[in-house]
């Protein structure tokens, strides 16, 4: 990797990253802050129990909402965290390579005698650093938020909460990884974006439909989102280690593949 490039990229990227980090932390605090109100209200849990099981499953609220870790896993990590990070991973991955190729700025970077693989590795590290920072902020922010906003009588499973964040980060390293691969593969920024965003939306839809309909539950076998189950982690019903290792390997393969592709291809600069 090239330090000068990394520093400059992180600097221009800092403002966007700060936006995502503060958005995630603030929203998470809001969710945590209203938890005591919901948990202490018996009507809401009755309402949830009256919903059909498939629907509860699709929304990830089969565990009810009176346990803090479950609640956070469902209300935050099940939806908003995923949506925000989907946007972040795809957009950032595309901006870091495909946009520079499309606009031609890549030619200046490559003309500086820094090798292609070094440029690609540096750009990948910018994306990975961003995802790491977001996951770290939501972990620390979440734990601090619980400390501040939730009365002591509610239990909070810190270990499970950290695991959820870890799995979320690994999932998005994979999503960021294939987005980065598309970014390295296409000349056209729009085409790269369409491929990365399209695949991600498809994966997400497959996961959602698979959960909703028992006839179509095979769809869950074709989407990467299956490997990320915040509600189950909160309930302590899954062993995350094999999945975590699998996701990490997939991410490494994708990023290494991207660098190789970028190294060998023709660039229309």
């Amino acid at each position: 990797m090239n330090l000068a490039l990394y520093r400059s990229m992180m600097k221009t990227h800092a403002r966007t990253l700060f936006g995502y980090v503060s958005g995630i932390v603030l929203y998470q605090w809001l969710v945590i802050w209203i938890f005591p109100t919901i948990a202490d209200n018996p009507n809401i849990n009755e309402l949830i129990n009256s919903m059909p099981e498939g629907m509860r499953k699709a929304f990830g609220i089969e565990g009810g909402l009176n346990e803090l870790t479950d609640y956070l896993a469902n209300e935050f990590y099940g939806l908003l965290f995923v949506l925000i990070l989907m946007i972040y991973s795809v957009m950032t991955a595309i901006q870091l390579v495909a946009r520079l190729i499309d606009r031609g700025s890549m030619s200046y970077l490559l003309a500086t005698s820094v090798s292609r693989s070094q440029v690609a590795v540096t750009q990948a590290l910018v994306l990975i650093s961003g995802l790491l920072l977001i996951a770290l902020s939501s972990t620390v922010g979440g734990i601090a938020g619980v400390e501040w906003f939730v009365p002591e009588r509610h239990t909070f499973e810190t270990a499970a909460f950290v695991q959820i964040n870890l799995m979320g980060m690994l999932l998005f390293l994979v999503i960021g990884g294939y987005s980065f691969l598309f970014s390295c593969l296409f000349n056209d920024e729009k085409r790269a974006l369409a491929a990365a965003a399209g695949l991600t939306v498809l994966f997400y839809a497959a996961d959602l439909v698979g959960k909703l309909s028992s006839d179509l539950d095979w769809l869950q076998n074709v989407t990467v989102f299956t490997l990320y189950r915040p509600a189950e982690i909160a309930q302590g019903t899954v062993e995350i280690l094999p999945t975590a290792i699998g996701l990490a390997i997939a991410a490494v393969v994708l990023f290494v593949g991207s660098v190789t592709v970028f190294q060998k291809r023709d660039l229309p600069l």
């Binding site: 000068a4 490039l5 400059s8 221009t12």
Partner: peptide
């Protein structure tokens, strides 16, 4: 290059700093 396309969000001096740093 024939096409002028620098990076977004930085000024000329920062851009030259970056290229000099990379070299």
């Amino acid at each position: 290059p024939g096409e002028i396309a620098f990076l977004d969000g930085i000024n000329g001096a920062e851009f030259l700093d970056l290229l000099a740093g990379m070299r």
